[in-house]
């Protein structure tokens, strides 16, 4: 076979896929195999394709994605634990011409920030909420989350979640879908290419609806935390399919009525 030089390979006409320019060129702080990074990419691809970089303000939570602003090339605010929807409320009301999104974990959104989540959804703020549900507190080292499954182990439920003592996993997504202020509530995953594409379509739809002032668009991504779950990335995806999806079924929960 003839020798091919590096220069020949990286010719623009050979390009089949590239990282969006809106992802900053630096190593992600996430564990290899974690879903956070994939969701970041989908989010930035949507913002690039919609050409709304200059119109978008994002909010990073407290959680593994606390440093999201290091990777996303848009104006961003870092919020106190759980309060991102309150920040988003004010930003969107003060600058209605902007796209405003929050990016939150399950501890952030469904435990400490439950009030902010429910009231922003109930008021019908014209914002996008991206909810990364990995059933665990990833950042702080794998403690029980409001979404931890019955029987699932975490550092603060080392023998598995006993619902008699620790209560039940909270289906906050189903809950916010009942509120009049949400227009689009949907649940996805990013563990296969097909699911990644669906998630991206959902994010795009959410951004479009928020701009049309239809209320909150809420996109849950059921995601793995291979480190917190103490599994390899491949095992964690399999475990997620077998255990998380039955409890948190993928698909649209609420779609806008036209």
């Amino acid at each position: 076979m003839a020798e091919i030089t590096r220069e020949e390979i990286i010719k623009p006409e050979n390009l089949v896929y590239k990282k969006t320019d809106l992802l900053v060129d630096r190593a992600l702080s996430y564990c290899p195999g974690c879903g956070h990074g994939t969701v970041h990419r989908m989010l930035m691809e949507v913002i690039e394709e919609m050409d709304i970089q200059s119109q978008t303000i994002g909010i990073a939570p407290v959680g593994c994605s606390v440093l999201a602003y290091e990777f996303l090339d848009i104006d961003m605010q870092q919020a106190a634990h759980g309060r991102a929807p309150a920040l988003a409320t004010a930003i969107k009301r003060l600058m209605p011409e902007k796209y405003v999104f929050t990016y939150q974990g399950d501890g952030d959104l469904a435990a400490i920030g439950t009030a902010e989540t429910i009231h922003a959804c109930n008021r019908g703020e014209n914002i996008v909420i991206i909810f990364i549900n990995n059933g665990i507190y990833g950042m702080t080292g794998g403690q029980m989350a409001p979404t931890t499954l019955p029987g699932m182990k975490a550092s603060t439920c080392p023998y598995g979640r006993d619902t008699q003592i620790m209560g039940n996993p909270l289906k906050i997504t189903e809950l916010v879908a009942t509120l009049p202020g949400t227009c689009y509530v949907t649940r996805h995953s990013v563990h296969t290419p097909a699911n990644v594409r669906k998630t991206k379509r959902a994010i795009r739809k959410a951004f479009e609806l928020s701009y049309a002032n239809k209320g909150v668009s809420f996109v849950e991504v059921v995601s793995n935390c291979n480190s917190g779950w103490k599994m390899t990335p491949v095992q964690s995806n399999k475990w997620m399919e077998e255990n998380m999806f039955p409890y948190y079924p993928l698909g649209d929960i609420k779609v806008p009525t036209v």
Partner: peptide, 9 residues
Amino acid sequence: VAAINMVYG
């Protein structure tokens, strides 16, 4: 709590 975080935003 929400109010002060709205001010932050």
